[in-house]
Design a protein around this nucleic acid. Sequence first.
DNA 1: GCTCCACGGGAAGGATAGGCTT
DNA 2: AAGCCTATCCTTCCCGTGGAGC
Length: 335
Amino acid sequence: MITDARVLRADFVPRDVEYRDSEVDALTAVLEPLVDGDPSAPAILLGPSGAGKTCISQYTLEQLRQAVLDIDVQYVNCWQNYSEYRVLYRLLEGLGKTVDIHRQSTPHDELLERLRQYDGPPCVVILDEADQLEDKRMLYHLHSLPKFTLVLVANEESEIFSGADDRVTSRFVGAERIQFYRYTVPELIAIMEARVRWGLEREAVGDETLRTVADVAAGDARAALNILRNAARHAQQKGVERITPDLLEAAIPDARHEVRRKNVDTLTPHQRALFELVDERGEVAPSDLYREYRERVDSPKADRTVRNYLQKLARYNLIRIERTSRDRRYCRVDY
DNA sequence: GCTCCACGGGAAGGATAGGCTT
DNA sequence: AAGCCTATCCTTCCCGTGGAGC
């Protein structure tokens, strides 16, 4: 039933994109100076998850690279590479300049210096999930490199620059903002249809199935494709030739829980204790949380460390942090 | 305005890892 | 092989800030 599993993946970049012409055009326009070998202003792509930011940035740059000229494109996911060192290393690696860099023993000033010396074709750096960067000064450093153009991708601008000082933010006042919005139901259906055409047997998915998936996904193309892929996989395992309503029903929570399960697996025992505590209580005040945590585990960590853990849990969307100061609450995330 | 609770930045220090030098 | 470096990661402590409630 599945003819090409790759195209059903949410991170697959299709040959043609749909419904994002204006965003593609906007990004192309920002990067236009590169065509004449001039430096380009940075671009910032903003919008909710699954709205096509990552896909469009990769697609647009691929177009530019193919059609026009000699440019290099480097993609760095800041979720995985959140420290300055890792980002720099990634870039050098991507540019094939790491040959004589010995991991761990090269100061990162030197990595930056290497990039400054870089004299290849202009390079566009896509920093995906840029809000995850630990040290925002990194943006300042990268921005100061002559040959590099930045494309920042994030949900909200405030998150990218939170914790950044004026020196950093002032560098990006002139950046072009491109806002992405959720896909509509018909748009999601069309996107899925295109993928289904390439990835599944013709009769595997009915119109009503796509409609249901699109409704559930609520404008999030990534979620839609994950659900679809899961349903198809289940169907395949069962040897069925068509995605039935109950297979679909089963795939919906599955797709949603997948990420969550994976995240829970990465937690340390202490972090998991905190997660379970919040999950059991539904909502808990800081002082109670600290106290119960201390009662529950052997050799508890310091409060400050617990706060770090809680931030991590929130980043992974395993808990929610609500309100501030004295009526701060840690809450369960319902699925 | 004061107190209290809580947050989170930053510094410090230890553990750990890998490469380089001798 | 031993010792030195440079880095990361983790944890803790200190402390300034800020909101809530009296």
